[in-house]
Amino acid sequence: MVFRLDERKLFPDPALAEEDGLLAIGGDLSTDRLLQAYANGIFPWYSEDEPILWFSPHERFVLFPGRLNVSKSMRRVLQSGIFTITTNQCFNDVVAACSSVAREGQDGTWITADMKAAYAELHRHGYAHSVEVWQGSILVGGLYGIKAGDVFCGESMFSRVSNASKTALIWLCNTGKYNLIDCQVYTEHLESMGAMMISREEYISILHKTIA
């Protein structure tokens, strides 16, 4: 059963999600609603021509920073100094770049104009963060996401040159700020770096402990 949200901004129990993770439909992208969603393991994912869809997958693809696997070739890239890393310097530019990247299993961008505005507002309030990767003065990669306790809920990443997005993720893991990186959607290259599937129950338990 898919629930329809109302103005009260309350989400149903994530355990009631459909087999594909779809939990609810409707509502809005207000800061309050988004923060409640992320605090309960729920995130929006929909296309421009759809109503707002809210998901809480039965399994979550995550990366524990302490289990990060960095290949020898990637270590050489990091040691070469070809990239410079900044954080929160051009959040909107990172989101715009990510919007040109389709998520696996979905045609076109899922980062709609409304989503961009909503995450810009989260960033303005200090909840959404970006990591930028530069070659000289050129932005060549990065990622952005939401901080929920000690969990970083990664929303999207992009790379205009080889290894730029990997560099952003490795930098994020090495900050020591997060117990868990939520990658949401499975990819082979993230699995090669140590990401794994855990149950929604384990994910939400970690999330709630770090927020508390």
Score class of each variant (00 low, 15 high):
S156G: 02
L122K: 02
I146Q: 07
I206Y: 01
M193R: 00
D13F: 09
V77K: 07
E50H: 04
E50G: 05
A97M: 14
R60S: 03
Q79W: 12
G141N: 11
I206M: 05
A195N: 11
S159I: 05
A148M: 10
I111P: 01
G27H: 02
R33S: 12
M157S: 02
G105H: 11
R8Y: 10
G108W: 00
D93G: 08
Y178W: 13
A117R: 15
A96D: 09
N88V: 15
E201K: 10
G176T: 12
I146Y: 08
F43A: 00
R103A: 12
A212H: 14
T112R: 06
L5A: 10
L139N: 07
R8I: 12
W110L: 09
I52M: 00
V140G: 05
P12M: 11
L29V: 06
H58Y: 00
F11V: 06
P14S: 10
C90N: 13
A118E: 08
S100T: 13
N92G: 13
G26A: 12
H189N: 11
R67I: 01
I42D: 06
S205C: 05
M197F: 15
F152L: 12
V77Y: 08
S73W: 00
A24S: 08
E202L: 12
A39E: 11
A24W: 12
L180H: 06
Y144K: 04
P65Q: 12
C183R: 10
L143S: 03
I52H: 06
Q184W: 05
N179C: 01
F64E: 02
F43E: 00
F55I: 00
H189A: 08
T187C: 02
C173D: 05
R8L: 15
G27E: 09
M1W: 10
S47A: 14
G21K: 11
N88I: 14
I85F: 03
R160Q: 14
L207E: 04
I25D: 11
D20V: 06
S73L: 06
G136M: 13
A168L: 13
Q89Y: 10
R103C: 12
A118S: 14
R200D: 01
A212R: 15
W134M: 11
M197C: 11
H129D: 09
M157Y: 08
A212G: 15
I146D: 00
T112Q: 03
L16A: 13
G27A: 07
I181V: 05
S205T: 14
L34Y: 03
R33M: 14
G21R: 02
